[in-house]
């Protein structure tokens, strides 16, 4: 995977422009629709209740609770594509994978994959000015790479109680004040938004894998492999979403929005392991 040296700078520039534009466009459009609705319905008791409940339930304005999604038709197309991919490819592969490789071994693989991406987390903790957490990430990496035998185990948590500090470039961009931009559902990769798409690119670029092996197919294979392993450890997540929702596309969009905002806000996310979705 070759990147020109100006790529990160270009990415950054684009993300500011794109996210900025996208945000403005969607605002004007939905504000117009909003005004119409408000003209018809005066704020009522329901809105009062929804208002100001707890910091994150300030959805008097509907825009706050849902993503601007002007690309919905395209996103829905890829959502269906991913759904088919899941049932036709990913699920059968996962069934075989799960049958061949025992649970404990899959946890070990997950540990290895997570340990290898520690530089990404370190970089993003530093970029967000979280120096104490950066120290934890570095300690975890050093302990797990040595005592944990090249990251196969997680003694940093088990023995030393150091919890993972997951930060990615999408979160860093958010901390820097970049707007979410519109919602995007990518084929294979799944739910995202403009900001997180650039975040994803940044994470790929800062992953040591890219520097070790200069071959796109190996990097892609590594990515797919790590995703299958993650799925094998959390098999019910997607099917539960489909089972409990009336419109899985909207449910996933809302879930993605809330979950990402929650992580960016750094409310205590109870995560004992990087291996959980």
């Amino acid at each position: 995977m070759k990147f020109s040296s100006s790529l990160p700078a270009l990415c950054l520039l684009l993300v500011f422009v794109f996210a900025g534009c996208a945000k403005q466009d969607s605002r004007t459009a939905s504000n117009l629709a909003e005004d119409e609705i408000l003209a018809e319905h005066v704020q009522d008791d329901i809105d009062l209740l929804l208002d100001d409940a707890f910091d994150d339930w300030d959805d008097n304005d509907d825009e706050d609770i849902s993503y601007p999604d002007p690309l919905e038709p395209m996103n829905r197309f890829f959502f269906v594509f991913n759904d088919k991919l899941y049932y036709w490819v990913l699920k059968p592969v996962n069934t075989v994978y799960t049958a061949i490789i025992p649970f404990d071994f899959r946890v070990v693989i997950g540990n290895f994959v997570n340990n290898l991406s520690a530089p990404v987390r370190l970089l993003n903790n530093l970029l967000q000015g979280k120096f104490a957490d950066s120290g934890v990430v570095l300690s975890r990496f050093l302990i797990n790479s040595t005592l944990g035998i090249a990251g196969l185990g997680d003694p940093a948590f088990v023995e030393f109680g150091l919890t993972p500090k997951p930060e990615d470039f999408g979160q860093t961009l958010a901390v820097w004040g970049v707007g979410e931009g519109v919602y995007l559902c990518w084929p294979v990769i799944g739910p995202s938004n403009v900001r997180d798409t650039f975040g994803f690119a940044g994470d790929v670029y800062s992953h040591p894998m890219v520097y070790y092996v200069d071959d796109f197919s190996v990097s892609a294979g590594y990515y797919v492999g790590s995703r299958v392993n993650l799925l094998s450890l959390n098999p019910d997540v997607y099917e539960d979403l489909k089972k409990y929702s009336l419109d899985p596309y909207v449910s996933m969009r809302q879930l993605y929005l809330d979950y990402r905002r929650h992580k960016i806000g750094d409310q205590v996310v109870l995560q004992k392991s990087d291996n959980s979705l």
Partner: peptide, 11 residues
């Protein structure tokens, strides 16, 4: 951070 009611509301 994911709220059940808000998710259904959006749907």
């Amino acid at each position: 951070g994911v709220r059940l009611l808000r998710n259904y509301r959006a749907q």
